[in-house]
């Protein structure tokens, strides 16, 4: 089955735009992290598509590393969310003004 790589890149662009919108517009920290996951998925999609297009394996390897980094990011990010929530309940970014000078 032949998938045109332009369609894959277009889908990746649309998904990345949705992720950016979600990250900027949501007020809940957990949903902002989810939007980051959507963006990382878009990048993985374009990597896999280009890897298929150039008949290279490096893109898929890079996508694997992106998944590993996403897992690390989720671990640290959710640890931060739990630590913040212990101090002050509520997961909205508007509540987090403690670092404001």
């Amino acid at each position: 089955m032949i998938v045109p790589v332009g369609a894959v890149l277009g889908l990746s662009a649309v998904l990345f735009g949705i992720g950016v919108f979600g990250f900027l517009a949501r007020r809940n920290i957990i949903l902002m992290l989810i939007s980051i996951e959507v963006m990382l998925n878009a990048v993985n999609l374009s990597l896999a598509g280009l890897s298929r297009h150039f008949d290279e394996l490096r893109g898929q390897i890079l996508a694997l590393f992106v998944i590993a980094v996403a897992a690390a990011e989720v671990g640290v990010g959710l640890g931060l969310v739990i630590a913040l929530n212990r101090n002050k309940p509520g997961a909205g970014v508007a509540d987090l003004t403690k670092l404001k000078w």
Partner: peptide, 25 residues
Amino acid sequence: GLCFAALAWLVRAGTGVAPAATRLA
């Protein structure tokens, strides 16, 4: 978000990758 998506779309159109389907693969 729309700007990012449009930018990525334009880059896709500009690279010349788009017209050639994955023939060799």
